[in-house]
Computed example of a mutant assay.
Amino acid sequence: MPLLLVLDGNSLLHRAYHAAAFEGMLAPDGSPIWALRGLIGYLARAAAHLNPDAVMVGFDCPVSSARRTSYPLYKAHRPDKPGDLLAQLAVAPELLAAAGVCTVVPPAYEADDVLASASAAARAAGWQSVLMTSDRDAFALIDATTSVLRVRNGGFDEAVLVDEQALPGLYGVTPAQYRDFAALRGDPSDNLPGVRRFGATTAKKLLAAFGTVEAAWQATLADVAAAVGDHAASFFTDPSAREVVNRNRSLMTMRHDLALPPLAGARLPLSYVTMRQALRARGINLGPSLWALVGGAPPPPSAVAEDETAGWKPWVFRGGLSARRDPTPGQLSLF
């Protein structure tokens, strides 16, 4: 079954920015490039390990937000981004597109919506998909054909590949329950408070007992209290809790119907010459590590040692796809 790799450009560029800010890598013209280089590195490493048939990168719309129009407090608490981060966010879609990577910036929507729409398109076409992001929201998209490669603190070496079987062990909920779980708990990073007294543990207990929040609302107060305790039950049965959950679910629901380029336009391999020229124009010099994106053979370790990617460590899958996607010893030796 073909595999589509989809990257959340915003979340991964943010993570790359903070991970290498101390290096402060600049292009010859003085512009910051370390987050851009890190984003390309994430893409190259994931391609080397997953062997995808196509790749796509989504970014948030920089000029408008349908969610903020619906709920003005959405992400309103976030401080202004540093100028050197904004500069790299602004040029990232253009750089990737110039390098030949299928890049999507949906009007009024976010990279999360690109992940959801791309996974839906892959499923409809009979493909598998892996969604690469540092955000947990994508866990709601997991199903029999969709997995999430979540990049955590520590970068790619600490990434976790979460599939339909792995998610319950990590969070105690199924993918179908994850949106209710997140709506109950809230998301401080998006300025979305949850139901009072409902952290992750209490939300998990409620869903374990009733399956969905709707089923819990239809249960008796005594039954809810038996599952989560009297105090949490009193807040959950208050009418304001329904408003909070419905608001959060609405804002957390990702669009599955965005207009995307056809999968044929996202196919690998990319042109090595085009990629190198586009990256070098920004002062980013990557060579052998791009092999999986451009249809090359894994280079010998001595060649990779001369590349800027030297020092990357092997990565081990947690959860998984089919056996043919597992990294080979030759692939592992590159990093």
Rank of each mutant, 00 (worst) to 15 (best):
R45W: 01
S129V: 09
A159P: 03
E164I: 14
L161T: 02
R78P: 09
D326G: 05
A303G: 02
V316N: 06
A209Q: 14
L167G: 11
P28C: 06
A99M: 09
R196P: 11
D163I: 12
T253G: 07
W217Q: 15
E306S: 15
V104C: 06
P327Y: 10
A183E: 05
P72F: 06
T174A: 07
P327S: 05
P32C: 08
W127L: 07
A144I: 00
A203L: 09
A166V: 13
S70G: 13
S234M: 05
G287Q: 11
P261R: 11
A35W: 03
Q218F: 00
W291M: 01
T133Q: 06
T237D: 02
S240H: 14
L95H: 01
A227I: 12
G155E: 08
R179T: 13
P93Q: 03
L89K: 05
R185I: 00
S333Q: 15
V304K: 07
A21G: 00
V160K: 13
D180I: 09
A226K: 14
V273K: 15
S134E: 05
R282G: 00
L149V: 01
I40V: 15
R242A: 13
P175N: 07
P301W: 01
P261C: 08
D190Q: 08
P262V: 10
D137Y: 03
L4W: 02
K313P: 01
L12R: 11
F235G: 00
Q277G: 00
M275P: 05
G58I: 07
D180A: 11
D187A: 12
Q277T: 15
L170I: 14
A99I: 06
K204I: 03
S70N: 09
G38A: 03
E110L: 10
S11Y: 04
A297P: 00
L170A: 13
L321A: 03
K204V: 08
G169W: 02
L184V: 10
D53R: 10
D238C: 05
R282E: 08
A226M: 00
R152K: 13
L332H: 04
T69C: 06
S129F: 03
F335Q: 08
E306V: 10
G83T: 14
N153D: 13
A241N: 10
R45L: 12
D53N: 14
V162R: 03
S234Y: 01
A66I: 12
P175S: 11
L260N: 10
C102R: 06
W312D: 14
A48S: 13
D112Q: 09
C61I: 02
W315H: 14
N285M: 07
P72V: 03
I284R: 03
M1S: 12
S240Q: 15
L95I: 05
A222L: 11
Q177W: 11
A116N: 06
M56Q: 07
F317H: 12
D80N: 11
T145C: 08
P28L: 01
P298D: 01
A215E: 15
A305K: 11
A305R: 14
P269N: 11
L26F: 01
T220E: 12
M132G: 02
V316P: 00
R282W: 06
D80P: 12
V151H: 01
F335H: 12
L5V: 04
T201A: 15
A46L: 11
R242V: 12
H18C: 01
H49D: 07
A222W: 00
T202Q: 07
R282Y: 12
S134P: 11
